Amino acid sequence: MSGEPEGSPAEPATLTIPRGTLLRSRVVSDVGTTLSRALDRELTGYATLVPQETLLLSGEARGVITFDDGVPVLAYNTVTDSGGPDALAELAVPGPYRVELYAVDASGLAAAHEEDALRVAPDAAATELADDADLAELTREAAPEERLRDADDEDDAVAAFLDDDDRIDAIREQARSEARDRAAEWGLDDALDGPSDAK
């Protein structure tokens, strides 16, 4: 999907996959319809998602979601070049969407599916794009055990970080310090001072 050659050094992760066999092309009001169809077909391939407001307003959301046996693996926004959860967040806009569903041989997606920066949890698309808890649960049930372990490990890492008060305090203090430095450069020291005693 990307014009960049595969394996370019020092480049941000981009999604490069072969053009597949078109299975379906239509406008849908709910992305859950497409995700359900991919899951039911145990599709290995990808879907392209273009929110119609993007077409009308020249917005920045043109997405690709890849599937392995019907379970989402990667998400990528071809306009902003962002991937993973960030891409899903950018695509989570009101429908309708222009959707195309493609089948691709598993070997054609193998390299792309190694891009950890573009990966999403198996149930993330159902949750973020379709707001469908039942579909999310069905997707988790269909996902390989290692995919669920990876997603749980990531959740645990985030939870551990949020529970690490010392690290969070250090980050906040660093942010405050940097903000004061910038304010001093711009002559805005007073804006960061505490509230005045004067009423």
Rank of each mutant, 00 (worst) to 15 (best):
M1E: 03
M1T: 03
G3C: 00
P5F: 00
P5Q: 03
P5R: 09
G7L: 03
S8W: 08
S8K: 14
P9C: 07
E11V: 03
T14A: 09
L15T: 08
P18Y: 07
R19L: 14
G20E: 08
T21F: 03
T21Y: 01
L22H: 05
L23P: 13
L23I: 13
L23H: 13
R26L: 13
V27C: 02
V28C: 05
G32E: 01
G32N: 00
G32F: 00
T33P: 01
T33D: 13
R37D: 15
L39W: 06
E42C: 04
Y46R: 08
Y46S: 04
T48E: 13
E53K: 13
L55D: 07
L56V: 01
L56C: 00
L57W: 02
S58H: 15
A61D: 08
A61T: 10
A61V: 10
A61R: 14
G63L: 06
V64A: 05
F67R: 04
F67I: 02
D69M: 09
V71H: 01
P72R: 09
L74D: 05
A75C: 05
N77K: 10
N77E: 12
T80P: 01
P85S: 09
D86M: 11
A87E: 06
L88Q: 10
L88A: 07
L91T: 07
A92D: 09
V93E: 06
G95E: 05
G95Y: 01
G95S: 06
P96N: 08
P96V: 06
Y97I: 02
Y97G: 02
L101D: 06
Y102L: 07
Y102I: 02
V104R: 12
S107V: 07
A110D: 15
A110P: 09
E115F: 00
E115Y: 00
E115P: 00
D116L: 14
A117N: 01
R119N: 02
R119V: 03
V120H: 05
A124R: 11
E128M: 09
E128T: 14
E128H: 03
D131H: 13
A136I: 10
E137H: 11
E137S: 14
T139G: 06
T139I: 11
T139K: 03
R140E: 11
E141L: 14
E141S: 15
A142I: 06
A142W: 04
A143G: 03
L148N: 06
L148A: 04
R149I: 14
R149Q: 14
D152C: 01
D153W: 08
D153I: 04
E154I: 04
D155L: 05
D155E: 09
V158G: 02
V158C: 02
A160G: 15
F161C: 10
L162S: 01
D164K: 12
D166W: 08
I171H: 09
I171N: 01
E173S: 12
Q174T: 13
Q174P: 00
A175R: 15
R176M: 08
R176D: 13
D181N: 03
A184Y: 07
A184L: 13
E185A: 14
W186L: 15
G187Q: 13
D190L: 12
A191F: 12
A191Y: 10
L192E: 05
L192W: 03
G194P: 00
S196K: 07
D197K: 06
D197V: 07
